[in-house]
Design a protein around this nucleic acid. Structure first.
Lengths: 225, 225
DNA sequence: TTCATAGTTCGATCTTAACCGAAGCATGTC
DNA sequence: GACATGCTTCGGTTAAGATCGAACTATGAA
């Protein structure tokens, strides 16, 4: 009878409607906060918290703490695959309903990640800032170089005038759509707010998307050139 | 939130340990009776019955009634695949334990199916009996031809002396390892008991396997030649 | 410092369902 | 006919866990 590994344990984790909704919301590999997942699942935050603890405990989800936010993502490709197969089985019986998937390309291009920029545009920015010699990676902290200071000043970010704070000045933040790091920390926040102040882009009202204007995008890329 | 089909429903069906054991026991595509599945799952027959009803209701299992036996098998390849994937996910976390799979080739070759023979040897027998003209398929009932009567008499089965009974004389029975029909009914029973009486084979004590002796197997195949 | 926000933990309620004994059917045997 | 066997249904108990209000912790903002 005890044939193979404990299949019922994970199946019962997926078997709760609230947890299943959370897992499907994460199927694209992005990471979402506990609150976002709570609303996705249609339960209160405290209920979601226990569900998420169970999912993380069962190694279906990975928790990543960032400030006061707790981000959750699927622990691996295999989990997504299992969900996909279960959807196939479920679809064949009862409702047909094929999987919808717009996946909002605007979000992939640029969005707010907490208070800094994420998405393609953000990943490209970090790449360029490093390759241009504006940032210098020593051990595990990023330092702004002299050239970087000048470049940032050119778009209105005054590094020297930013004062001191408990919050780290620069930090790397994994970008969930690109699966590569982008810039976070106080500097990341300052750059995003400057981008918005310059009128290069506007944050979307109803989502985390940030939409660049044509002119703004041109100036942004030119700055990074 | 309501993204895609109802994944949690089937996951919760698999999520119960007893049901998971039943499903894994059926993963090779064979059909097992309710009692066999009850002992596989380690629960009483009445508990197993409700579990099996739920699984059949959720279209994960198909029930096939044969006399007083209720056979259950997976409703499709996709179910087996889903179980396989879940095992993969479960194996990666917690216990490693790769899937064992002797799957007893003896059972595939020849076994008792209720009171008649099943497996490769049985499927081959039906094929030969039809192609030799011993059985004639009219509408949906099989009739023994004159040649068939002689051939059966040659190994000791007296068709004329079998009397009358409520039980159908010939019947087709789906062979779960071969996925093709074999001979059942009173004739099937008579042939198996004659095979045993002739000493061509012995039933295994602890399983449903039937093991042919080398000489018995030779004579059996010769008879069907 | 005080306040707000994001999450967790505790406690209590309440629904669900797994379980088995006992009784009821259906099928096959004698 | 009576009996045995395989399986299901009914009834009642019990255990698990999903849920949320309320209180608590931690981080960030003013």
């Amino acid at each position: 009878m005890k044939d193979g590994p404990n299949i019922s344990e994970i199946a019962s984790l997926i078997g709760d409607p609230a947890r299943a909704n959370m897992l499907t919301a994460l199927m694209d590999g992005r990471a979402l906060t506990a609150s976002e997942l709570a609303s996705q699942a249609g339960v209160t935050r405290q209920t979601a918290s226990t569900h998420l603890a169970k999912l993380a405990d069962g190694d279906l989800l990975v928790r990543e703490v960032q400030g006061r936010h707790h981000y959750f993502r699927l622990s691996g490709e295999d989990v997504a695959e299992a969900l996909e197969v279960l959807m196939g089985v479920a679809a064949k019986r009862s409702g047909v309903r094929t999987r919808t998937g717009p996946k909002d390309p605007a979000l992939r291009k640029a969005r707010r990640c907490y208070d800094h920029l994420a998405g393609e545009m953000a990943v490209r920015m970090l790449d360029k800032m490093v390759s241009n010699g504006w940032l210098d990676q020593t051990s595990d902290s990023l330092k702004v170089t002299c050239e970087g200071r000048t470049a940032l000043h050119a778009i209105g970010v005054d590094v020297d005038g930013m004062g001191v704070s408990r919050r780290p000045f620069t930090k790397l933040c994994l970008d969930w759509s690109m699966r590569r790091p982008h810039l976070a920390g106080r500097l990341g926040q300052a750059i995003l707010s400057q981008i918005l102040a310059n009128g290069w882009a506007q944050p979307d009202k109803n989502s985390r998307a940030v939409s660049f204007t044509p002119a703004g995008e041109r100036k942004y890329l030119e700055w990074l050139s």
